[in-house]
Design a protein around this nucleic acid. Structure first.
Lengths: 192, 192
DNA sequence: CATATGATTAACCTTTTGGTTAAGTAAAGT
DNA sequence: ACTTTACTTAACCAAAAGGTTAATCATATG
């Protein structure tokens, strides 16, 4: 791998672990096994590098989410598929979403997300209304509840872990159970 | 108000806004309208001050949550009451929960929380099993889903806002609607 | 071969930041 | 009057951190 690529990957790891302000340019250089000057050679400064990483992570966390939820899949299957695949995706990189949420407070989402959000709302609203299997519920409420339920275990892992510990269960077992039970709860919650 | 109290309050505000690493001792002093030396006079160093704030915020965010959910209230009423009061509580200090979650990645929860968690699981499990109105569902799954649904809008506010914007609704309207719809979805989701 | 170009480094510089110190003030307690 | 308590001030320090520079290396190109 060339240096430039190694640098973003290293930057990404360090930013995810330490947050924007906790990250050190030196550590990013070290982990990429290059000189600190080279980091500044490819990326003007810390801010630029961070923005690059943040954009990348935003896309990876949010785009697939929107993609699945605004697809043409049938609603029950869609919810099931989303919960399963999104939990698995987050599990592969558990730090990512926490980092994302942490930095979301002080950084704006890349603006191209907006457009896709529109598509998502439109598709999902129609889908809910068109079938008479479902109650009259606000699609935004449903959407945010589903997303919340998938994402929360990863951003509040210490709290959730202490809950699962008490219940005598591992975090992973909890996640597996969640993939089964969550779609049921949500779907029964919106069916007539 | 005496200086010491002004300092924590100021520290809390600054930590919430900028995060642990982004916060500056100088800014904390300035906002408390005291000299930086006085901050170190009362709190040994930044770490100590932060821990103080973090403990305080942990208690304020998590204790009432556990308190309500492990109370003896009847289940339907309990869920309704929790959603209503917890959303209102978070709304009063919207930065708090995001800060909490952000720092939760790199700091441990105050340990006394553990005990209360046990009580919560016990009470909630019994409650779910004892009534035959409800399906056989894992109480931990239900608990985390309810908490997630209340907390998520505040920690992912930019994303949720872009959803509500598209739907032509304000964030506050969304929250009000949530107080009504969320308990219905959850309760119908766990009823037989 | 000479040289232009991009990649890489070691050394350095500057600013920021957390933290300290020592002297001093003002008011309350004894 | 003396002392303690609460707080202030300003100057200072050392380390950390971001960033720059000038020289060097590698390789491709005229």
């Amino acid at each position: 791998m060339e240096a430039k690529e190694k640098i973003i990957q290293s930057a990404r790891a360090v930013f995810q672990e330490k947050g924007k302000n906790g990250a050190r340019m030196q550590e990013i250089a070290d982990r990429a096994e290059v000189n600190k000057a080279l980091v500044h050679y490819y990326y003007k400064n810390k801010e630029t590098l961070f923005q690059e990483v943040f954009k990348q992570v935003s896309v990876e966390t949010i785009v697939p989410l929107i993609e699945i939820l605004s697809s043409e899949m049938e609603l029950e299957e869609k919810i099931q598929f989303f919960v399963n695949s999104y939990i698995d995706r987050l599990r592969q990189n558990p730090d990512m979403i926490a980092f994302m949420v942490g930095e979301l407070q002080r950084n704006n989402l890349p603006f191209f997300i907006e457009e896709r959000v529109k598509k998502l709302i439109d598709q999902f609203s129609k889908q809910l209304q068109s079938s008479d299997k479902y109650k009259v519920v606000d699609p935004v409420q449903v959407l945010t509840s589903v997303i919340a339920a998938c994402v929360f275990p990863f951003i509040a892992k210490p709290l959730v872990s202490s809950l699962t510990d008490v219940a005598g269960e591992s975090f992973d077992e909890y996640l597996e159970k969640r993939k089964l039970e969550l779609p049921k709860i949500i779907l029964d919650g919106i069916k007539k």
